[in-house]
Write a protein that binds this DNA or RNA. Sequence first.
DNA 1: GAGCCAACTTCAGCTAGCTGAAGTTCAAGC
DNA 2: GCTTGAACTTCAGCTAGCTGAAGTTGGCTC
Lengths: 221, 221
Amino acid sequence: MPTPTGYLTASPYFAGIQPDTLNSLARQMVFRTFPANQIIFLEGDPCEGLWFIQTGRVKISKLNSEGVEHVMHILGEGNSFNDIAALDGGACPATATALSEVAAWLLPHDVLAAHLLQDSQLATNTIRLLATRVRGLVRQIEDLALYSVKVRLARFLLQQAENPALSGVGVTRATIAAHLASTPQTVSTLLRELENDGAIQFDRHHIYISDAERLRGIAAL
Amino acid sequence: MPTPTGYLTASPYFAGIQPDTLNSLARQMVFRTFPANQIIFLEGDPCEGLWFIQTGRVKISKLNSEGVEHVMHILGEGNSFNDIAALDGGACPATATALSEVAAWLLPHDVLAAHLLQDSQLATNTIRLLATRVRGLVRQIEDLALYSVKVRLARFLLQQAENPALSGVGVTRATIAAHLASTPQTVSTLLRELENDGAIQFDRHHIYISDAERLRGIAAL
DNA sequence: GAGCCAACTTCAGCTAGCTGAAGTTCAAGC
DNA sequence: GCTTGAACTTCAGCTAGCTGAAGTTGGCTC
């Protein structure tokens, strides 16, 4: 059985943490795997703890009362999720689904809570990470409230170029659409437009940014 | 010159904090007033610190590249703002504007940072508050991505009933519209619709919820 | 109490983007 | 190499909600 120590040291949550604290955390973590398309937890479920992805891709999403889905985050190797519920002990704020086969480590809520009280470095890291999370969410709200689907798509493609988790297995047009609060048809049409604008080239499997500067212009960045 | 100690003890940031810590913080805070419509800080400004509202109403908003505004929060007496910049020391993530005459206390960033390292109770409070903030932002994203303007308006009215800061001076149709990512005209039309639905009654100055259950039904809650 | 102005309301016309349908492509299994 | 099905593309038609314009209201100032 592997230990998660390596993955922990790589996570910003545990930067600068004492090795013995890290070992104590690692010993109490639980390893789990999920097949593609399996739900890891549902919105409203009681919180198990903080998850760290070892391999695979996970989407965090919400459904409205009619079953329409909005994808809040697409995560990959090394990312963590469910931090909010893990930190406040409340219900999971969204649903997590495996987009591909997933291997992940769970840090149970009570273990995290106990260490947070004792380790001021861990608390500081957590505050810094939450601040980053808030900035990211504010950016998402800004996008939804103030920019068209075309601009949001351009911004997504620019993010994709920097974050490999945002493309690959399971990230279909439908997933992108659900992330942009749009539809697969509209994403298809707008990709064609961006191609005609000379910003990108694409086929069924890959999207290449052919003119990043132009794409950034369209993205209003 | 008044001291802010009373306002501090009332803020969830400082629940359970030792009185001498509180006094040390209070002594280093700065009192300022702003006339109605004055900008307190702009998005991108370097961070001064954490603000606590003593009296008055403040809006936190973002502008897109064409000058269209989205109101992220409307805050009143006892609320704090600019926590993210105050905690990570980065630039202000949004613009703060006084909607009415405002009296507020500023806790400078470096003072907060120093106390955070020393006081684990303060760090714990901060983490809990940030978790609440994240839940609120996730809810806003859900609203924007998954529900119509009418549903968002109904939800806003239900929040307004519980939070006095969301109504009163400076909270015009235009402000509500900018909070819902819509327009004053549409808000006007939809208020009329909600009235015809029998959920509310309104005039130029007040909105009364006449059937909360029905309004909750429309709000999909 | 007259006049002004910002906020509000209503309406006609327009458009971004959704819906549903039909056709295409391609990877995987047999 | 044939079949199947999921993902993708394209298009015609529709609608929620925006835009601009015109008219109303009511609190302030003098």
